[in-house]
Nucleic acid binder design. Structure first.
Length: 557
RNA sequence: GGCCCCUUGGUCAAGCGGCUAAGACAUCGCCCUCUCACGGCGAAAACGGGAGUUCGAUUCUCCCAGGGGUCACCA
């Protein structure tokens, strides 16, 4: 077989040699040990939670080593591509602080190792494809899609759990193997007839032979050699993931390939390809998948459509991006939480991220844990920050609330400052959406009696206590004086002023000072639970406090 | 079904041949307390099973089981 002739037949317009391409992609001038990593999504939708892991790892590894982190768009499948998805991915990633040194950015590409969109690199792949044909390592296959589908029954594979499937697949493989035997004349005839072909690798592996391989996360693995003549170039001349991965990561100088562990089964193909192409193999990090629980209680890979998968949803739910980062970091490096506890003020980017600390097994997404982290992050913010972020959120998702918030910024900030800034800050907010529930009662627009006063109390007693409070209330009182007055009112109306005493002897009283406080709380906030009443009243102001208490009294008469 | 990966409390996980097997979240008590939140103290809760190596296995090896992933001209 004259492979050179075959190569020219298949790629008549490809004139460059691999060496010509290599010259355009010189080694990067980086310090010793610098890592070059990339995030390489296909533009088929949004960034999902699972995608945040490899991108965060890549970003950390590169920037921690003064390396390069770039974005490559794997748009090799026009059928699945979603209009505007690439731009959406870039925007979302930026929202989570994932910034790229090179690659696809809004409005074009940046960097000397592009193009960074695979659809624009067809001619480059063809150079290497042609080279493989010349060396007898790849061959054209003229089988149609339908033929292969029928043979392998892939559309029925869900039902075929037994050996049938295996046999069908084997039959398909043998059929395809025949393609290996085509003569030059036959290929020439097919080409002349205008038939399309896919380019397949001529696999030389024996799956019974295992090659040792070390993954930086998984450790030592045994990979069976590849014997599948997988597709390099689709019939439209665009490469498959496998081929594009090898060519691009080689040319772009990727030192560490970071991807999900679902790629492990096809690693054998990649090892073979790098060997065929004579490329230096990069290091690999196969990250364990994020899981979710299905309705039967078993773990499944978290995928699109799943609750919590779409990162754009987090914005709407009101989660701050730094909360998401924190959670991702705790899952990525188990010692992150400890470090953060010791360095509460430092951003996560100062944490010494370590590959060794990455888990080998998939974890479940835990909203409870995530919310806890979120509460901690927000509790450390200033009232000013909380105001800014919650207003930003409200402007986008709750315009009415936004206008209420910014109607009197100082008032809102005073509210948000309650219990904030001390050693033991309140942790009421996990999301910006929570602000409305937490502090809505401060605004007349949202104030209503949500939880009534316990029915076991006599309304005349309640009215008496509230009236007594109104008479004695002085907004200039200190907290101590304020509370002493409530105690006095309690005692005068048959409620125990001392809660301990009340506990010891509950039958001697109508209730305790805690109950009297509850009357006030419901009257003023409409709720059974609220932040410190003294602070609430201070911020609300005497007029508003009086108005609400009076209103409660009227409703009880 | 073949192949590959994974397996410590409900969840995330320390551990890397000898420990009363950390810690965090969640749960449940108690304390603090005007409620809630915070904070403090405490409780309950785990090495999937079986062989082997070894004086000694959560830790090393093998087998099994369970879970997950993958088997496209998708990535």
């Amino acid at each position: 077989m004259d492979y050179n002739y075959l190569a020219d037949l298949l790629f008549p317009n490809t004139t460059e040699a691999p060496a010509d391409i290599e010259a355009k992609y010189p080694p990067r001038n980086l310090p010793e040990g610098a890592k070059v990593t990339r995030f390489a999504p296909s533009p088929t939708g949004f960034v999902h939670f699972g995608g945040l892991f490899p991108s965060t790892v890549g970003e950390r590894l590169a920037h921690q080593s003064q390396g390069i982190f770039y974005l490559r768009i794997e748009d090799t499948d026009a059928k699945r591509e979603v209009e505007g998805a690439a731009e959406g991915l870039i925007t979302t990633l930026a929202h989570y602080g994932i910034n790229f040194d090179e690659g696809a950015v809004l409005g074009g590409d940046r960097g000397d190792y592009g193009p960074y969109r695979q659809s624009q690199r067809a001619s480059i792949y063809h150079v290497y494809a042609k080279q493989l044909v010349r060396e007898g390592k790849a061959y054209p296959c003229f089988c149609t899609d339908e033929e292969i589908q029928t043979l392998s029954q892939t559309d029925k594979k869900a039902e075929i759990k037994n050996k049938d499937w295996h046999e069908d697949a084997e039959a398909a493989r043998l059929q395809m193997l025949k393609q290996r035997e085509f003569t030059i004349e036959e290929v020439e005839a097919e080409i002349k007839a205008g038939h399309k072909f896919v380019l397949r690798i001529l696999a030389d592996g024996d799956p019974n032979k295992k090659v040792p391989f070390t993954d930086l996360i998984k450790g030592k693995l045994e990979i069976p050699e590849n014997d599948e003549d997988f597709v390099l170039l689709k019939s439209d001349g665009i490469p498959t993931y496998h081929f594009a991965h090898a060519v691009d990561d080689h040319l772009m100088g990727t030192t560490h390939v970071i991807r999900g562990e679902e790629w492990l089964p096809s690693l054998a193909k990649h090892l073979q390809l790098f060997r065929y192409l004579n490329f230096k193999l990069p290091k690999y990090l196969h990250i364990a998948q994020i899981m979710r629980l299905d309705e039967n209680g078993s773990k499944k890979k978290l995928s699109k459509r799943d609750m919590g998968a779409n990162m754009n949803d987090y914005k709407e739910m009101g989660y701050a991006p730094e909360c998401v980062n924190e959670y991702v970091m705790t899952l990525l490096n188990s010692n992150y939480e400890e470090w953060h506890a010791q360095n509460p003020e430092k951003p996560y980017t100062e944490f010494p991220f370590s590959i060794k600390k990455m888990s080998t097994s998939g974890c479940l997404f835990d909203f409870k844990k995530f919310n806890d982290i979120s509460k901690n992050v927000i509790s450390r913010m200033t009232a000013e920050q909380v105001y800014k972020y919650s207003l930003e959120w409200a402007k986008e998702f709750d315009a009415e609330f936004a206008s209420v918030l910014e109607n009197d910024p100082e008032y809102t900030k005073a509210i948000l400052a309650i219990g904030r800034g001390g050693k033991k800050p309140r942790k009421d907010l996990a999301t910006w959406r929570d602000v409305k529930d937490y502090a809505g009662f401060f605004y007349d627009k949202y104030f209503k009696i949500e939880q009534p006063i316990d029915e076991r109390f006599d309304s005349s007693d309640i009215v008496n206590c509230l009236n007594a409070f109104l008479e004695s209330y002085d907004c200039c009182d200190t907290m101590d004086v304020w509370f002493e007055k409530i105690k006095t009112i309690s005692a005068e109306n048959g409620f125990c002023a001392d809660t301990k005493e009340y506990k010891n002897n509950p039958d001697a009283y109508k209730g305790s000072v805690a109950d009297v406080s509850m009357f006030l709380r419901v009257a003023v906030t409409g709720k059974l639970n609220a932040p410190d009443m003294y602070s609430v009243m201070q911020i609300l102001g005497k007029d508003k406090v009086s108005e609400r208490i009076t209103s409660m009294i009227d409703s009880l008469k």
